[in-house]
Computed example of a mutant assay.
Amino acid sequence: MGIYVEARVRAEMETLWERTQDPAEHQRWDLRFTEISYLPGAEGAPRRFRYAVRVLPFLAVAGTGVSAGERHRAGGDRVSALRFASAEWLSPLAEGSGYWRYVPSGDGDGVRFLTGYDYRPRWGRFGAVADRLLVRPLMGWATAWSFDRLRLWCEEGVTPERARTHWLLELAARIALVAVPLIATWLPLGAVSLVAVPLTVLGLAAAVLVPPAPHTPAARRCLRTPPGRSRPAPRLLATLERP
């Protein structure tokens, strides 16, 4: 089953295109990549690129890919497609492909920015189980969170760096809502310890149910399943060779 994510971005098409097609801009908002850079190639041909994801301060997983885009299409929409692969054993994704669609909304209010992609997991049977239980849900969440981070940048002018700070602060506050009263239940504080249990339950409910702040990126704001009958992958994808 592939991954699908869609966001409504109320911004100019050109702004969205630049911030997704320029590697220096792309790596700022996309949580799935730490570094993206184009490799030398012929002008007008599909662009080859190198990507890296830093999983620890001293450890990064890298791969290569090839991408192409169609900027001028009948109907005013745009599309880009890519194929990618990593030869590194530590990468849970062996190879994959996907696309971005930029569709002007029918009511003239922004752009429907959507992606569909899939990949082949590494590590055999263990990798297939790990992908189904952990990696694929995490990739879907990271894609949606990144799309909302991009939306905040295009719509509200909240830079990706500021959005990350907002998210970390809010995450810390949500953890504190649960952790502080939970710790109090283990302390010999008499009456305080008695009320700590219901406070822990209330804190957990608030941490889960209170919606994120307007300038905090959230995956829940994005559509995660195709609306109705989904369109097939663009023909552009079939023209790309494996990296």
Rank of each mutant, 00 (worst) to 15 (best):
A42V: 07
A68S: 08
P40N: 07
V79A: 04
P57S: 10
A45W: 03
A52Q: 03
G69H: 00
E35R: 15
L31C: 12
Y51M: 06
F49C: 03
R32N: 08
F58C: 14
G44C: 11
F58R: 09
V55F: 13
G69A: 05
T34I: 08
V66Q: 06
E70T: 02
G41P: 09
G76E: 09
G63N: 09
D77N: 03
L31F: 14
R50A: 10
R73T: 13
W29Q: 08
W29V: 07
A45D: 14
A52Y: 00
P40D: 06
R48W: 03
A81Q: 02
A62L: 00
T64D: 06
D77C: 04
R71F: 03
E43Q: 13
L82P: 00
R32G: 14
R73S: 06
G69D: 06
L39Q: 12
G63T: 02
V66D: 05
A81M: 03
R54E: 14
V53Q: 12
E70I: 08
S67H: 00
A62Y: 00
R47E: 12
F49A: 06
P46D: 05
E43K: 06
R54D: 07
F58Y: 14
A60Q: 13
A68E: 01
G41A: 11
A62S: 13
V55M: 14
F49H: 04
A52I: 08
Y38Q: 12
P46M: 03
D30R: 07
S67I: 01
L31Y: 13
A45C: 08
S37T: 14
A45M: 10
L56K: 14
D30C: 12
R32S: 10
R47Q: 12
G63S: 04
G76F: 07
E43M: 09
E43H: 10
A42M: 01
S37H: 12
S67V: 10
L31S: 15
E70C: 01
V53I: 14
S80M: 05
R47G: 02
H72I: 02
E43G: 09
Y38I: 11
P40M: 03
I36H: 04
L59V: 15
P40I: 13
V61Y: 02
F58L: 15
A68Q: 04
L31P: 01
A62C: 08
E70M: 04
R48C: 06
F49W: 05
